[in-house]
Design a binder for these strands. Sequence first.
DNA 1: GAGCACTGC
Length: 713
Amino acid sequence: MTDSSSQNNNDSTNGSHGKRPAQSSGSSGASFPKIVKFNGNIQRTPGRDLDATKRPAPAHYSREDLLAQKQALPIYAVRQRLLEELRKHQTLIIIGETGSGKTTQIPQLIFTHGMTENGTIAVTQPRRVAAITLATRVAQEMGAQLGTTVGYTVRFEDVSNFKTKVKFLTDGMLLREAMLDPLLKRYSVIILDEAHERTIHTDVLFSVVKTAQKKRAEQGNNRLKIVIMSATMDVDHFSLYFNKASVVYLEGRQFPIQVFHAKQIQEDYLFSSLVTLFQIHKDAPADHHILIFLTGQEEIEAFAKSARTIAKDLQGKYANLKVCPLFANLPQNQQMEAFSSPPPNTRKVVLSTNIAETSVTIDGIRYVIDCGRVKARTHMPATGMDVLRIQKIAQAQAWQRAGRAGRQAAGFCYRAYTLNEFEKMAPNAIPEIQRCSLTTVVLQLLALGVQDPLHFDFMDKPPTELIEGAMKELHLLGGIQSIDKPVLTEIGQQMAAFPLDPRFTKLILASKDLGCTEEIVSIVALLSADSIMVNASAQREQANNVRAKFASSEGDHMTLLNIFRAFRTAKQNRNWCFENFVNYRNLLYAVEVRKQLAELCERTNIPMKSCNPQTEPIRRCLLAGLFLSVAEYQREGHYLTLGSRQTVTIHPSSVLFHTKPSCIVFTELIQTGKRYVRQVTLIDRDWIEELPKETLLQLRQTFRGTVNGPNRS
DNA sequence: GAGCACTGC
């Protein structure tokens, strides 16, 4: 550990040995962050973690084992000095690689030295599974039963009680708590971990904890200690934001990784990655597995096909090759393939999206091939549309990817881009808060008591248009009094209470008058979950045929509801899901969301009325809540949106893709190759005129001239 | 007749 400002001690691990594929050359001079092998037994299960039976069982260690493991962590030797720093400063920034032991050891250090007399230690994580596994591990090390002294809180699961002193929670969960108590009075220490990931929640929390600390200090009792933990080397930014807070560096052990860059610019990064794969395959021992970072499902499936074909031609000449795709939308049983050990004399090649960058860890990876690209979502405030496109990664991401080769032993990373290209990459990825729709964030800020979101103390301020766009949408939804005076209305307060996109809360509120809350709450829950349709390209046709019995001629929302009802009738049976090509995990998730929403409805006096067997109220409700998302048929399959007057197409996954009704309401607008609307429902155009007067007035004001007389061509 | 990266409440 060294004190701040003297830090530039990255090991350059670009060694001189190692074989080079023909089109790659050894990199020179680029620094490499420290990679530390985690010395515990923490494993992360992929995907949303709802199925408790699938969670890795906590390993059982003896007291001696646990102590030995603790002592082997790099942090152990410096714990006394670290403690001094923690005592000395009210705000401390700790830089250390993931797995250096900081996340498990620092909360214990704080706890055992009495810094929790006036409250609990909160440790935030960007992901649920991490919060759960870390709490399990720390409880074990402290000899406590999980849920007592050590616990965790994530959505749908609160394993903590009033005695809990070390609490792991998702950053989103702490933000929720802050909306009820902006001073976060029950905590004496708040640790924001993985701060370098800059999730939208952590970014808001930066300011929330800073404000809470200041106010509590002014009140003079129960002061708040803040610890920011990050893996980034760009510490000045953090330190400056937290009033020049002290920075502590934690060194770790690492396995060296040799990095190679392409010799010249690769026109086709897929082809280049494929060539590299087989050059490695020719020489490396069979149990040295390979991880290839690609951008998306389609790309991965095409790459897998090519790789398997080539491997078949080479059969018998080298080791066997087992190709495993890995992306979040892949059904869990297929995801597990990427984590299992392959048979003898077989090399595993995992083709992954950036899910393998942070969310999951795969054993035995010695080689990484990095295509240098990522698919990222950007919000366009002018059109209200999200654009999904492939872009170059940042340097920090490139190092993160490379690090995946050195988790258990020395490794290699082959980059499908030149050193020059690498040097031209942005040092860090653009934080989420600067590129996503901020409607929910602005709503949360207002609920937290922030007066002027435009001048909120962001660590990195989002573009003004994004904040203004959010205010505009909130105003249209009736959530704030006016754009100039952003004060929450009663509707706005309800929107803040619901863990939903405000547009979806609006739907629930609209359902009250139409007597279809029972149905709308299910639909909103389904829209909140990942896709419930299983869509492997290989069996797409079969899947569509089997699911045809659920399809509604009225659109996707009714179709979703039909599947959900059938799932519940089938007693939420897993096999039923398998037979019907629907995703069990995501349906279970929707059931949980529905439960939560139903409770909130009860609390806010929205009766769970059903309109069954009628469906018209549901479609009228969708229109009432989503009146900004209406489109009219033009010609050649194109639609024109009522509000922003953009040409859009119904997404091929929609049940209305063939039908092309004259007027539709949709829940998602996204640009990939084309501009698509997804989740589409057929409506009667006359219903627009029958909307409540205030809504119509608002519509006319917003889109003058487009509501009464759209040009039909 | 064509395709959405990843999280979270």
